[in-house]
């Protein structure tokens, strides 16, 4: 089985894997980082979004082997030194989650939106940018509020 090595949440990791292993399977099953979820088979729900080399991608639609040497951040790697990331805080403060299943992907996407679009986000921009993330619980109302608040908090 081929070997893959990468940095995940700041730690060097490697594994011998079946070549068909998706990045999300490598994270969930090999590394037991189960915060990244799988909600569909067609790359639409966004439950699996992680950051690779600083950009958000759907880890269910990419092979682990394609990320040799990459720097991967998952939801587990967002908080530092026991301090939540401002976007995590914003989701809790604004009740931007209910069952929590889509939440890791939502938060990773939200951080990526801020990285690309800045800290002042209007409602329309946020809704548009969330096109690739599906939530069945919240009706998005509070997610939109959370992303806007998280974006502002990230400026501080």
């Amino acid at each position: 089985m081929p070997k893959v090595s990468m940095t995940v949440n700041g730690k060097a990791v490697s594994g011998n894997i079946d070549s068909r292993t998706l990045l999300v399977q490598f994270l969930r099953e090999t590394l037991r980082l189960t915060g990244t979820h799988v909600g569909c088979d067609t790359s639409q729900c966004g439950c699996c979004v992680v950051h690779v080399n600083g950009t958000a991608i759907k880890s269910c639609t990419t092979l682990a082997l394609s990320h040799e040497g990459a720097n991967v951040t998952t939801i587990e790697g967002l908080a530092h030194d026991g301090k939540l990331h401002p976007m995590q805080e914003a989701f809790r403060e604004n009740h931007g989650l209910q069952c929590g299943f889509c939440t890791p992907g939502m938060i990773m996407t939200a951080v990526d939106i801020v990285n690309r679009k800045g800290n002042k986000l209007d409602e329309q921009t946020i809704r548009h940018e969330l096109e690739g993330n599906i939530c069945r619980c919240t009706g998005y109302h509070n997610i939109v509020k959370a992303v806007a608040a998280g974006a502002e908090a990230m400026a501080k």
Binding site: G46, A56, I57, K58, T61, T109, E129
Partner: peptide
């Protein structure tokens, strides 16, 4: 095309 994460790949 697609969504932001898809456009990144």
């Amino acid at each position: 095309i697609g969504d932001p994460a898809v456009r990144n790949r």
